[in-house]
């Protein structure tokens, strides 16, 4: 009698290596810690930052989708995660800078365990990173959170959107949900160690789809510009 065993792909790796790789193997302990951390963070955001979330009904109920948001501080990711239903938490993957979050142990623990981040190469391996995003979204039910500005704003103003998001969704029927967080820059600007108790408001816009556009450079630029406009418009309300 022969049984088919499927050992974990990261069986002989250390904890740090297991957290650094992507996709990560499912781990009940990590899921438990992430769920507990999510509850604490949601409580913190509500109490300390009076976080308000509007437009939750715009989030697609089924299938994979992409969320794009302005990047004002580290609070952005936490607020977007707080908007997602708790049971879905382990299938939401915010893209995080590989060169910033996946190097030192404390940041790695936060990125991989608490945030469930996807390591994104900003300077090198951009193509491979986009490929990783594509394969992630091919699995129905996965949610990718992107900050197309590529880095946190240093002035508070919305920066240009990089074309990567455009090339990811052009010619596909993947819904893209624009979001805008107000108050993030005032609460936790770059260079400060701890956030200040400022009010936060996350607005979730209606999903967009770019199935009709061909998958080329021109469309990528157009889509990025269109999404930037959509995010900026949410911020005007």
């Amino acid at each position: 009698m022969t049984w088919r065993y499927e050992p974990a792909a990261d069986l002989d790796q250390s904890l740090a290596e297991r957290l650094r790789r992507f996709p990560r193997e499912p781990d009940l302990t990590v899921y438990a810690v992430r769920s507990a951390a999510a509850l604490l963070l949601r409580g913190w955001l509500r109490l300390f930052h009076r976080l308000r979330i509007t437009g939750r009904e715009n989030l697609p109920k089924e299938g994979s989708f992409v969320i794009v948001c302005n990047h004002t501080s580290h609070l952005d990711t936490l607020c977007v995660l707080a908007a997602m239903p708790l049971p879905k938490l382990h299938r939401v993957f915010p893209a995080a800078a590989q060169d910033y979050f996946f190097i030192s142990a404390p940041r790695l623990a936060i990125a991989a365990i608490v945030v469930n981040a996807l390591p994104f190469g900003r300077q090198k391996h951009i193509r491979q990173s986009l490929e990783l995003c594509r394969s992630l979204l091919a699995n129905p039910g996965n949610v990718l959170v992107l900050f197309p500005e590529g880095t946190r704003t240093s002035t508070g103003a919305l920066g240009e959107f990089k074309p990567g998001i455009g090339s990811l969704v052009a010619g596909t029927d993947l819904p893209v949900v624009p979001c805008h967080l107000r108050g993030g820059f005032e609460a936790w600007p770059r260079g400060k160690w701890f956030p200040r108790p400022r009010k936060l408001h996350l607005r979730i816009g209606k999903p967009r789809s770019y199935a009709a556009l061909p998958n080329d450079k021109e469309s990528a630029k157009r889509i990025s510009a269109d999404l930037r406009e959509a995010v900026a418009a949410l911020g005007m309300d």
């Binding site: 065993y5 499927e6 050992p7 974990a8 069986l11 193997e25 781990d27 009940l28």
Partner: peptide
């Protein structure tokens, strides 16, 4: 047990 489950694939 977790190690056993990861080795056999039962952890899925």
């Amino acid at each position: 047990f977790k190690e056993f489950a990861r080795a056999t694939g039962l952890y899925r």
